[in-house]
Nucleic acid binder design. Sequence first.
DNA 1: CGAAAAACTGAACACCTATTCAGACAAGAA
DNA 2: TTCTTGTCTGAATAGGTGTTCAGTTTTTCG
Lengths: 224, 224
Amino acid sequence: MVYRRTHQVVKRLAARRSAILTAAREAAAEQGMGAVQIAPVAVRANVAAGTVYRYFPSKADLISELIAEVSRDELAAIRRAADAAPGPSSALAAAVSTVAVHVLSQRKLAWGILAEPVDVDVTASRLASRREISGEIAARIDAAVRAGHLPQQDTALAATALLGALHESLVGPLAPDNLDDPAKLRDTVQAVTLLALRAVGVMDARARGLVVQATVPAKTLVGA
Amino acid sequence: MVYRRTHQVVKRLAARRSAILTAAREAAAEQGMGAVQIAPVAVRANVAAGTVYRYFPSKADLISELIAEVSRDELAAIRRAADAAPGPSSALAAAVSTVAVHVLSQRKLAWGILAEPVDVDVTASRLASRREISGEIAARIDAAVRAGHLPQQDTALAATALLGALHESLVGPLAPDNLDDPAKLRDTVQAVTLLALRAVGVMDARARGLVVQATVPAKTLVGA
DNA sequence: CGAAAAACTGAACACCTATTCAGACAAGAA
DNA sequence: TTCTTGTCTGAATAGGTGTTCAGTTTTTCG
């Protein structure tokens, strides 16, 4: 008489949950956060509207989890890129240009995660997301400072400022608009990376070198 | 039989319009854009809800005008500060630290104007506001470049990035929270101004000097 | 003053989408 | 198979706020 979830059911439940999240992510990536509405997302995920509520207590929770998921992916990418760099300064350069490239390649999604007005309260998860990414950048700046490559500074403030600069200039309302051209995109990534590195105190000449180093692998990856 | 507006009436109408805008601005400054709702604003301005619609076609128009108004004030302050500076580099420093001080002294309002989620569409006026301010900063960067104080660069992109850095680090969700302490506030303004100047290519040592110069008048003004 | 025009009022309306829930359906145990 | 528990459905509900508009007050002018 005890009803126990069979393995098959557990798998189906997980798949559904994931399908809903994916549907939400796709909607956000295609049309922005505004398009993440329960009914359309449910249709996209092949479930009824009510079903969504068996997996997420509320729309706010759904979006929060979406934000957390994207944020995890982003953080992992940043770490991978930075850890592969030869030293602290180029690790910082790699981290920054990774953020730039990612943000640019998913502009709608990035804007949605970061700043797009949403009708439900997602401040907490947005805050958490920023904390994670900013913390990682701060750690990289700190490493470069400790290595004597950068002047002493408030690394948390600097990291936040860098991210603000990247976001506003790349996905903000004043962002350049012809970034579909790969060459233009690369130039823009290099330009903002250069600004970021100089901001924390890398000398102009050295910064230019780091930027090129950090961008080349990105290019080859895209080409591969 | 032709009804013509008497001078007195014209004045009263203008006063009402202004009262409504002021009410909206106060609400935004105290509790954020979310508090700018027709009914409460009407109460604050001592009119009925319906009356608001005799002055503004829609809530979106009301908020748009609020944004434009604040933006005009801001732009004027930036120009004043920059024009009073002795040279292009210190004009840039003055412009940047003016933005920083203003944003910090009206944090809720700034956040509302810049990035707070609003239920109506205000993208157009936010865009215009950003364009104005960013254009002004870009012009100042350009002047410094032409004077040979800064390396050649995409000044529009740089200006946008600088503003993003200021906003995110000063009124974003990760902004430091104990900025009511004047000393801490001054340090923060100086820190972000320093980041901004270095970002566009000012040498560290020179940047530090400019920052101090640009911040001292601000301090004395506050004290006056 | 009295008529006409404008301005104002505020309660009622409209709209939109998240959320609910009673009934239908599927899956496990006996 | 049959009973029970779990899951799904989707139409109906709920709640909140921008907007309207018929009626009231104020203003102009002969």
